[in-house]
Amino acid sequence: MPIYLYLDRGTLFHRFHPTVKVFGLFAVFWTVFWLDHPVALAPVGALLLGVAHASRSWANFRRLSWLLLLIVFFTSLVWILFFRVGAPLAKVGPLWVSRASLEFGLGRGLKLAELIATTIIFLSTTKVEEFSYGLRALGVPYRVGFAITLAFRLAPLFIDSALEVVAAQSLRGHEFRRGGPLSRLRRYAPVMIPVFMGALRKANNMAMALEARGFGHSPRPTSFAEYRFTRSDLFALIALSVLASASFLAYYLGWAGIKIR
């Protein structure tokens, strides 16, 4: 089973220069960061849906849909119930919601969904090597960039290993869902210890293999991949810059915030 989210589809979004892709990731994060109101966030969401479609990333959205929905739903719910500002619209026992809390909660959920969607699109269209190259081009030190990309490489391995450990301990009659929160936390020790030890061992083996393959030999490693900056890259950079600026402007002018009534 492939361990990355990268989908080899050859769309325009796949062909963008790595620097543009990494810049795009941060530009969308920046854009979303300044927006709170769901109406302000909605156009960005629509734009992301369009990009997901054009980059043919739906397979990964389907794969992670349960995670996406779960996080967005609970985030919205928690903020709607606990953002206790404005005049109550409805009340059930100690819980109440206001227009402001509804807007804020939905905005938070949407914001999180857009951040996750941006990451999924980025990982669906960007190889680990491109990510590393893009980070270097934006001035991130090579080792730091490589470590970040390695984390993407390792995460699925650790998840697989954790699932196997959970199965192994269940077969020994271990129940993870017994007792209160603290007791439940303690009951995860039989999983955490083997996973942690395995991760240390794996990281050690990987570090050894990296050094044996010359990692760190040259202060300026070269790149096997060749990337050309094209006119499409330039247009994309301009569009992303406009988007990021517009978002900040909307924030600055107070168009993107929640009004308390």
Binding site: K127, L150, N205, M206, G216, T222, F224
Partner: peptide, 20 residues
């Protein structure tokens, strides 16, 4: 633990990249 890249050609080139 000794494969770091997302395609075979990059994997083979990895050590050469490190050596410049």
């Amino acid at each position: 633990s000794q494969l770091f890249s997302t395609n075979v050609a990059h994997e083979v080139a990895f050590a050469m990249e490190q050596c410049g």
